[in-house]
């Protein structure tokens, strides 16, 4: 009878039919289970650090999404306007610059941003942790916002091939409104949402990777300065690295699995947070594509 009640629930049917919502639930539930497990078995200071690191990474990721949206929207619409203006010089220059930006790997752009941040910190120009996070988010956004700009241009180009735009122009609606409201806001929200979720995933990955690299490779400099705690630099922490190294024991001593989830919890929790979040974000983005038939 319990099974009937469980599977007969309409919310479960809805959830399995909407993969994005299903994976959002799985993400929250998975992190919830991890939180309870850590609350039970992880020592209090490490648990506090893990929570701060996760929230900081999440906050930075959200800021990246906002900055990318703003920059991408601005660039996409600007390119479109310049392309249809009489003088094509502006379009040529802007396209050329974006073309060059595209050829710089994201991690290099972010690394340059971090080097500049280190210099600013050394000179005492930036002090607050929040401003550091804003800077980091801004740097990552510069590395990834072109994807938003591309999506915006694709949507505008698509609608320009239809009668949609001409008909609205004939009705006296301003082109700016047609692009910003009718095309992008009213008819492209699911496309944008999909792209922004993907960017959120990339930003978490880049943030963790660069923090890890900086903490490992530039440790002499970074020890002088306190970067905000994130999943990346918590993973680069000696304790966490020891925990990850302990996974090697499983190859020679499979019985070690019984203690690994209690004794090496800090590193495993951080790694799980990163990997599980990336997987779920990818699945959520795919779910949106499927539900809204974006492909």
């Amino acid at each position: 009878m319990a099974i009937r009640t469980f599977t007969g629930n309409s919310w479960l049917d809805k959830l399995t039919s909407k993969k994005d919502l299903l994976w959002l639930t799985i993400w929250i539930a998975g992190l919830g289970v991890l939180w309870i497990w850590d609350a039970l078995f992880l020592n209090a200071p490490a648990f506090a650090r893990l929570q701060t690191a996760f929230l900081n990474s999440l906050l930075t990721g959200l800021m990246v999404v906002l900055f990318s949206l703003a920059l991408g929207w601005f660039l996409g619409v600007s390119l479109n306007t310049l392309e249809h203006s009489k003088s094509k010089i502006g379009f040529a220059v802007l396209s050329f610059v974006t073309d060059i930006l595209r050829s710089i790997p994201q991690i290099i752009a972010v690394l340059i941003g971090y080097v500049v941040l280190t210099i600013l910190l050394h000179n005492g120009i930036i002090r607050s942790s929040f401003v550091q996070m804003v800077w980091i988010a801004g740097t990552i956004a510069i590395a990834v916002f072109l994807e938003v700009a591309d999506t915006i241009r694709q949507r505008i180009d698509y609608f320009r091939t239809l009668d949609f735009v001409d008909a609205m122009l004939c009705c006296g609606i301003k082109e700016r409104r047609i692009i910003n409201v009718e095309i992008l806001w009213k008819n492209s929200r699911s496309h944008m949402l999909h792209k922004l979720i993907a960017i959120f995933g990339i930003s978490i990955f880049l943030q963790c990777s660069i923090d890890f690299i900086i903490s490992v490779g530039l440790s002499t400099d970074v020890s002088l300065i306190n970067f905000p705690m994130t999943l990346g630099n918590l993973l680069a922490n000696v304790d966490s690295k020891q925990d990850i190294l302990a996974l090697s024991n499983l190859f020679t001593e499979p019985g070690y699995v019984s203690v690994i989830f209690t004794r090496h919890l800090q590193g495993l929790s951080v790694a799980f947070c990163i990997v599980f979040s990336m997987l779920c974000i990818y699945m959520i983005a795919n779910g949106i594509v499927r539900r809204h038939k974006l492909a």
């Binding site: 963790c208 990777s209 996974l247 090697s248 190859f251 990163i274 990997v275």
Partner: peptide, 9 residues
């Protein structure tokens, strides 16, 4: 991420 796999082996 590559560094997690590499450190674990």
């Amino acid at each position: 991420p590559a560094y997690v796999i590499a450190y674990s082996v």
